[in-house]
Design a protein around this nucleic acid. Structure first.
Length: 222
DNA sequence: GACCAGGCACATC
DNA sequence: GATGTGCATGGT
């Protein structure tokens, strides 16, 4: 990579500025959003969270006590609502049983231990776990998503078939261990992804266009 | 109407 | 271990 990870970050920040992530009012709301946003547009998640807020259900104990079928109906706008209701319930069950439904207590655990606990919940994968750790708990763990993979692979900086852990290590080993920068960086990657790096790339006006390899964006080999 | 969105688990080979 | 598929609503 000719540009450093920090230079890429600076370009994105210069172009877009602060992203104010995560778009949630409380750590618990962030955690709920992290499950609901799986493979889903954020706009749909907002509706689901609004339904929960209207019923005063945005706290760990109340939401855990709600029957899963009722939870499913409330989060319906977020899509995959039946499976997400189960996933959310699984997560709330873990928080209730291990931490007495207290996020404050939960976030006193060390990062690696808590990450493993989150990953042990059925329905919480690496991106959801890291989103909770970074955006709800403020812990220094880099969040990788499809846009991260796409943007960096199209620039030839990583392989198209690089796995989650490999990409995460790539960022964490190339940047200072700073949760604020991890926060902003991931948000900026989602922003540039939305604007320029959907399934069909649109590199016109992209702040990273000058950094593309000769011949334009790379494509996966087959 | 087709395509896409800030994943994840599970089946099958 | 790699690859394919189901899950679902709402915006473009």
């Amino acid at each position: 990579m000719t540009a450093t990870l920090d230079q890429v970050y600076q370009r994105l920040f210069l172009a877009y500025g602060h992203q104010h992530w995560w778009p949630g009012k409380t750590p618990f709301e962030v955690m709920v959003g992290a499950v609901l946003v799986q493979n889903t547009a954020w706009k749909n998640v907002e509706r689901a969270i609004a339904n929960l807020r209207d019923r005063d259900l945005l706290c760990p104990r109340a939401l855990y006590q709600l029957p899963v079928e009722e939870l499913a109906e409330l989060i319906r706008p977020a899509g995959y609502y039946r499976i997400k209701a189960r996933r959310l319930h699984n997560l709330l069950k873990m928080v209730a049983e291990r931490y007495d439904s207290s996020l404050e207590t939960m976030f006193q655990s060390d990062l690696d231990t808590l990450r493993e606990e989150l990953l042990s919940v059925n329905g919480v994968g690496p991106e959801t776990a890291d989103s909770i750790l970074l955006y709800a708990a403020g812990m220094p763990t880099f969040v990788v998503d499809t846009y991260t993979q796409r943007v960096f692979a199209r620039h030839g900086w990583i392989d198209f078939d690089a796995g989650y852990h490999e990409i995460k290590e790539y960022f964490e080993s190339g940047l200072p261990r700073d949760p604020h920068q991890y926060n902003e960086y991931h948000a900026l990657l989602v922003r540039v992804g939305h604007l320029h790096c959907r399934k069909t790339p649109n590199c016109d006006g992209c702040p990273l266009a000058e950094l593309l390899p000769d011949g334009g964006p790379r494509q996966p080999e087959f």
